[in-house]
Each structure stands twice: as structure tokens, then as C-alpha cells.
């Protein structure tokens, strides 16, 4: 969890942040340490109030942590180290009196090595609406422009807060493919927060689950899913087996679910068969990220 590596794109060390003072203070982050390796799409999950937005705002320099610090590509977070980042924090914010092209022109001038404005407009599908004032844009168009603004400075890493918010299904697919493309083809690191767990499951290599400002779970998506997998059996007399297996087993879907390590499955089958249990069907059931998320946050609650 949060192991420090030399090739991390973002490293957060013991971040604490409380909003308000005294008894009325709300602890948003409570000693959080997390490392985001380079060249990876990293998902940040957590229920409302878990501290995701606070964390992203600290990375973006919008708020200061009470203690702890953030490193970006090995350097302390600051205006200079943030130059290699593209950041889209919460809902995209724009000047309604400027056009998309003017926004990108302005941000390009603030970047050391900007991409061509036309190329970015084409990439996010806003080339035809480039000269229209942002006040006339739909939420989806604003989201696309937000992504365009993060890309214009040719960043090495992106920090995206709910990047598919407001997009239609086609737009969501395009955005997912764009994010994957940026990571795979351009080698970009992407840290994204999302409430859409299936989206995170599809595009992220690793995830961190936050709860009450602390890390509830962290790891590769595949590992987390395997860790929470269950073995399902259909046998002749399930009641007898349930009482024999005890706490780790529960009835479901016409059979029995057994919570266990996948590596122990062959031993279990062998012992059941030698014990005279007739097995009609058996399978390893992988959970989706949603059930992992729910079980992790519940465990933390308890």
C-alpha cells in the first residue's frame, strides 16, 4: 500500500487535511499515503466524502494539506512540477465569454511545449464548434473541452475527476478509448476518480479505495477481484455441507458460496470427493469491482 518507488508519477506521503476547526472540524484526509506509478491508468474510488476530491485538489494546488506532502515526478508539488500535468478537477470550469479555441490558445501560451490547438480540438471532437462561445456548450462538450485543456500542454500525466460525467454513451466509449490510448500509446500516467465502477474496472490497471480519508484497499484491479473471489458448488445435500463448512459458506444461486483463496480450491474438491460428497457443478466466481468496493467500504465501517 502506497509503497514508495523511484519511478512514481505522483507520491502522496501522510496527507492530513481537516476542514473547519475544533469539534466541528471535518477530517477529509487522515494520514493518507499513496503512490501512482508511471505509465498507468490509476483509479481512485470511494463513497461521497471519502476524500477523493480533497486529494485531487491538493495535487492541483487548490488547497494545502495540514501536514504531509505531495511529490510529482520526484519533485515537490509546485507550479513548476505541475507543468508536466494536465488536470481536470471536478466539473470543468470555463469563461463563458470565451470560445473553445480562445481557451486552448490561452492555455497553450501558458505551456512550455504546447500541442497545436487544432490538433487538440480534433482529438476531442470540438473542431467544428471551436469558435462558439462556451456559454452555448452542452455539459458533454464542456467535458470534452476540459479534456482538451488538460492535453494542450503536452503533459506526461493527467489527473481527471469524473472524466465521463455528462457524456452520452457514445461519448463515454470515446473517452474511455482516449484515456486508454493516452496511457498505452503516449505512455501517459492517468489518475482518475470515478463513481462508475464498471468504467474503472474496464480502464484502470490499479485502484485505490478511500474511506473516511484513509486507504481501504489498494492494488491491481485483477488482484483485488481475485482476492474477493468465491467458490460456488452444487451438491446433493447442501444443508449438511453448509453445517460442515461453517462460517465461510453461505447458500446462494441454488448451491453454496464458499469464501476462500483460489489456490485452495483443488484441496477442497479433493477432500469433498474423498468424503463422499457428490458434486454436480463447481465454478470460481469472480466478483465485479462494485462488490469489492462495497465489501471493502463495509469492512472499514465495521
Amino acid at each position: 500500500m502506497g509503497d514508495a518507488r523511484a519511478d512514481d508519477a505522483i507520491r502522496m506521503i501522510d496527507i492530513r487535511k481537516t476542514f473547519g476547526r475544533g469539534g466541528a472540524g471535518v477530517r477529509a484526509l487522515d494520514g493518507l499515503s499513496l503512490s501512482i506509478p508511471r505509465g498507468m491508468v490509476y483509479g481512485l474510488l470511494g463513497p461521497n466524502g471519502a476524500g477523493k476530491s480533497t486529494l485531487l485538489r491538493i495535487i492541483a494546488g487548490l488547497i494545502r494539506p495540514d501536514s504531509g506532502h505531495v511529490e510529482l515526478f520526484g519533485a515537490p508539488a509546485g507550479p513548476l512540477s505541475r507543468q508536466s500535468f494536465g488536470m481536470l478537477i471536478e466539473a470543468p470550469a470555463f469563461y463563458p465569454f470565451l470560445t473553445a479555441r480562445e481557451h486552448l490558445d490561452m492555455l497553450a501560451r501558458l505551456s512550455a511545449a504546447p500541442l497545436s490547438v487544432d490538433a487538440v480540438l480534433r482529438r476531442v471532437g470540438l473542431f467544428d464548434a471551436a469558435n462558439k462561445k462556451v456559454s452555448g456548450y452542452s455539459l458533454g462538450m464542456k467535458q470534452r473541452l476540459g479534456i482538451g485543456c488538460t492535453l494542450i500542454g503536452q503533459p506526461q500525466a493527467l489527473v481527471l475527476d469524473e472524466p465521463t460525467n455528462g457524456l452520452d454513451p457514445e461519448g463515454i466509449l470515446e473517452m474511455r478509448s482516449l484515456i486508454r490510448d493516452l496511457a498505452v500509446r503516449d505512455g501517459m500516467t492517468v489518475l482518475l476518480s470515478s463513481h462508475m465502477l464498471d468504467e474503472v474496472e474496464r480502464i484502470c490497471h490499479r485502484v485505490a479505495i478511500l474511506r473516511h480519508g484513509q486507504l481501504a484497499a489498494e492494488g491491481a484491479v485483477a488482484d483485488l477481484l481475485d482476492r474477493k473471489g468465491r467458490f460456488w458448488l452444487k451438491v446433493d445435500h447442501p444443508d449438511q455441507l453448509l453445517s460442515r463448512l461453517g462460517e465461510g459458506a453461505e447458500p446462494g444461486e441454488g448451491g453454496i458460496f464458499i469464501t476462500m483463496e483460489q489456490s485452495n480450491v483443488p484441496d477442497l474438491i479433493h477432500s469433498l470427493v474423498t468424503g463422499g460428497v457428490r458434486i454436480h457443478e463447481a465454478k470460481w466466481v469472480k466478483p465485479d469491482l462494485e462488490s469489492v468496493f462495497l465489501s471493502q467500504t463495509r469492512e472499514m465501517e465495521e
Binding site: 509546485g78 507543468q83 500535468f85 488536470m87 478537477i89 470550469a93 469563461y95 485543456c149
Partner: peptide, 20 residues
């Protein structure tokens, strides 16, 4: 005030120092 009203500080602050 425009930067507070349109929440556009979040567009600018990551790109330059606040004093600048």
C-alpha cells in the same frame, strides 16, 4: 471575482504560481 464566479481558478492555479 470572475475567477470565483466561474470557478476558473482551478483552470489557472495548477498552471502558474498564485503570485504570478
Amino acid at each position: 471575482f470572475a475567477e470565483y464566479r466561474f470557478a476558473t481558478w482551478r483552470l489557472l492555479v495548477p498552471r502558474a504560481s498564485r503570485s504570478q
